[in-house]
Design a protein around this nucleic acid. Structure first.
Length: 204
DNA sequence: CTCTGGATTAGCT
DNA sequence: GCTAATCCAGAGC
């Protein structure tokens, strides 16, 4: 962009950049970590609802007994078969929605569950964002967004001000997957250490 | 602090 | 029928 004096004006710090398709093509575990510190943005009725991602979980598809796609395609999990950079939103426990970021290429049904956000003061959110069901409520995310591209304007992810250092990323067992046998113990939950907005208290 | 039940749909047995 | 990638309110300690 040209400034008044004809010289290039840096806008990269001022205008956050939407993450490109390529970002989502990476392997699911690195993607789950790389999403920490990014900003999830939802446009709703002319408002911009957003938060910084501080907790994620990786779900590894057909090898992962905890994943919805472990036993193949169903009506509910179809969106996980889209190429990386789409949303998979499902309804659970008769009450809550959860949102996942689809990873890798089409027909590689792996995804990253967004478990917690740090709310941003400027964003008019409806309630808390520490927990996968709560954050969907706060950002007005429903099944209407299932299968939506994250490269569009309705919901997307962008670079934010800062990222956790490697030593600020914690890992632990995933929540609520006790039924999944060996996979239940895999350390596929990732979180920004010290964030007050994690869905569970960190162990000392 | 922990435990329990209820909200009630998708998917499996 | 039962359980779940959840959350909340209420009871009891």
């Amino acid at each position: 962009m040209a400034g008044a004096n004809g010289r290039t004006v840096r806008t990269s710090k001022l205008v956050p950049k939407k993450l490109p398709r390529k970002f989502y093509f990476q392997e699911t575990v690195p993607l789950a970590k790389a999403l920490l510190g990014k900003r999830l943005v939802r446009r709703w009725r002319g408002r911009r609802l957003s938060g910084i991602i501080v907790e994620t979980e990786a779900y590894l598809g057909e090898i992962d007994a905890a994943a919805h796609t472990y036993k193949g395609r169903t009506e509910r999990n179809q969106s996980m078969y889209l190429e990386g950079g789409h949303a998979y939103v499902y309804f659970i426990y008769g009450m809550h929605y959860c949102i996942n970021v689809v990873a890798k290429r089409a027909n590689q049904p792996e995804a990253v569950l967004i478990r917690a956000l740090a709310p941003e003061p400027s964003s008019p959110l409806d309630g808390r964002t520490d927990g996968p069901g709560r954050l969907c409520k706060a950002l007005r995310i429903t099944k209407a967004l299932d299968g939506e591209s994250l490269l569009g304007e309705t919901i997307f992810i962008e670079d934010a001000g800062s990222l956790p250092r490697q030593d600020e990323i914690g890992s632990a067992e995933r929540i609520g997957v006790d039924y999944a046998g060996e996979a239940a113990g895999w350390p596929l939950r990732f979180y920004w250490k010290g964030s007050p907005y994690l869905s569970r208290k960190e162990k000392k």
